[in-house]
Design a protein around this nucleic acid. Structure first.
Lengths: 144, 144
DNA sequence: TATAAATAGGATAAATTTATCCTAAATAAA
DNA sequence: TTTATTTAGGATAAATTTATCCTATTTATA
């Protein structure tokens, strides 16, 4: 469904949110250990999230990655996915047609629309805060 | 969502169904022209569909690919997807966790379940026949 | 039986995604 | 101001997916 990069990005963002809520900056090393991902590759993904203003980075000693506390509640999964995988999940034809719309639909156009709409809604209505709270409460997990 | 191979496979199967309903065998060349896909690569995908008994191939002169007429109505999209992409779309964690279930869920486990269930149902309830009829009626399209 | 027409399938190449490594730039603190 | 620490980012490699090419095998028919 999502690219590996996107999976890492989502998990990283959640881990950063958990830590930022406790005024704690984290490094790519900590992150990759905590979400079980390759460190250098994860660092690249973090760069993308910074460029897209999903998270903030602080360079130099005592630096690291963080999310502004008030941003944790307003940041939706959709923003993270968009920053890494783009809008291909919503936009674009399920069967790869160049042109696929109501007037010129691919064979699964209508049926796909329903599923994708559901996915879009889910991503747009799920905040980093909800996901981070579950991790803090120990009812969901970032690895294994 | 699906791999390129799977997109080609679905479109090829629909085109074969359309032709088989008119007692017409088709070649990889015709198929790839009609669905706008690379011919040799499409041929490989057709092999996979044959191995998985989704379609039938007839070798030699006057050969080609076909689907038994009575199979067109009973074949579901899910069988095609499974033959090419496997069951990764239903099974497997949305965030790539090795173990992800009710007792040890990833952060998006419950939310993802809903979307994937919807996708699964759609694929399992959509027959080749429905899709082929739309193509024949000219209300949906396999390319452009 | 020989020939032409088709699919099967192995080998290989190109493109993309995933992953690693190394150096540059920024920053806090000694 | 120097040093240690930390992210940024370019270059490169490995793995996977997508795509091509060539030959083997099968089959109808002349």
């Amino acid at each position: 469904m999502f690219s590996k990069a996107c999976e890492y990005g989502i998990k990283a963002a959640i881990f950063i949110a958990v830590n930022s809520s406790e005024n704690n900056r984290v490094s790519p090393k900590e992150i990759s250990e905590e979400i079980d991902s390759p460190q250098a590759f994860t660092a690249k993904i973090l760069q993308a999230l910074v460029r897209n203003h999903v998270i903030k980075s602080v360079r130099g000693a005592h630096g690291g990655f963080e999310i502004a506390k008030d941003k944790i509640a307003t940041t939706k999964l959709s923003e993270i996915v968009y920053a890494i995988d783009g809008d291909g999940i919503y936009k674009g034809c399920g069967l790869g047609l160049h042109t696929c719309n109501e007037n010129h639909p691919c064979p699964v156009h209508d049926k796909f629309k329903v599923v994708r709409e559901e996915l879009r809604e889910m991503l747009e209505n799920t905040s980093l805060e909800q996901l981070a709270l579950d991790i803090k409460a120990g009812v969901s997990f970032l690895k294994i």
